[in-house]
Design a protein around this nucleic acid. Structure first.
Length: 273
DNA sequence: CCTCTTGCTAGTATGATCTC
DNA sequence: GAGATCATACTAGCAAGAGG
């Protein structure tokens, strides 16, 4: 496991800049102060103080300011292929359980808080001069945190909604696949065939597992990616619609406005002030 | 002129319910 | 658990128009 980068950020208003995108590195995100909305892999999470989010590589994520000052830190790392970071399924379960204070009665979670507090202190110190501890010590804390999260999650039962573990695993692996291929030309039939289920049963099973329908999940992934393109590139709306897998700019533009309240062009203008 | 947005509409996806 | 049916909701393409 290698450290790729770490940042301690303070955001005072919605136009102060935001954080997010897609990258091939696993990420640990901690909310120290203020409130935000984390969009990760098509789902929205309330990001409030003491929330620790684990974001798998190649999954789109976006942190939107709600109230401030918003103070947070994130660490991007290359976890390697084996046993490094949490699995996608573990990350979903963990992120849904945040913030940490809610789990304080659990001794493992108290251990996680102590480690996260040490990381916070080091990174906060880094804003003034350089991180309190060296990279090697910091990565030990990161590893420890991940192991404790895995230990905490390992004690719990899986989702009670679908008793057939095979179907649920299939849908989870399909979700991971969609996260890395959201820009491809997917439709319900193809997805259902990949899961070896009929379309109607597939939609039901998917919604039980993910909380949204397959197409809704796909559109959320695509919109998250589009926001990243709008913020970080000069690509036209037409090009972004194509690059994110939307069949038409018309549909993209409409979905975008429904979700963010403004058209893609307006969103770009307001976020570049 | 080009890019982007929006109204309209046909085709497709979804959800409820039932059956096997 | 898995599949079938059907009414309803949603998606996506076409065309027209706004705006820089």
């Amino acid at each position: 496991m290698f450290l790729r980068s770490c940042h301690y950020c303070t955001v005072n208003n919605p136009f102060d800049g935001a954080s997010g995108g897609i990258h091939p590195f696993d990420e640990m995100l901690y909310i120290r102060e203020g409130e935000a909305t984390l969009e990760w892999s098509g789902q929205e999470y309330r990001a409030e103080p003491s929330s620790l989010f684990l974001l798998n590589r190649d999954t789109p994520h976006w942190l939107a300011f709600r109230s401030g000052p918003l103070r947070f830190w994130y660490i991007e790392m290359d976890s390697g292929d084996e046993d490094g970071f949490v699995t996608g399924e573990q990350a979903i379960r963990w992120n849904r359980s945040q913030p940490l204070v809610r789990l304080d009665s659990n001794p493992i979670v108290r251990g996680i808080r102590q480690t996260v507090d040490a990381l916070t202190e080091s990174l906060e110190h880094g804003v003034r001069s350089k991180p309190l501890f060296g990279e090697e010590v910091m990565m030990l804390d990161v590893r420890k945190t991940i192991r404790l999260v895995q230990a905490h999650l390992g004690k719990r039962q899986g989702s009670p909604v679908i008793r057939d573990g095979t179907t649920q695993e299939l849908i989870h692996s399909l979700m991971r696949h969609m996260e890395s291929t959201y820009f491809e030309d997917w439709n319900l039939d193809t997805l259902a065939r990949m899961a070896h289920l009929t379309p109607s049963y597939f939609v039901r099973a998917f919604k039980w597992t993910a909380g949204v329908t397959p197409i809704q999940y796909l559109n959320k992934l695509r919109l998250s990616a589009a926001v990243s393109f709008l913020a970080n590139t000069d690509m036209g709306v037409q090009r972004i619609a194509e690059a994110t897998g939307f069949g038409s700019i018309h549909y993209f533009s409409r979905l975008f406005k429904m979700k963010y309240g403004v058209s893609p062009q307006m969103w770009r203008q307001s976020h570049r002030l």
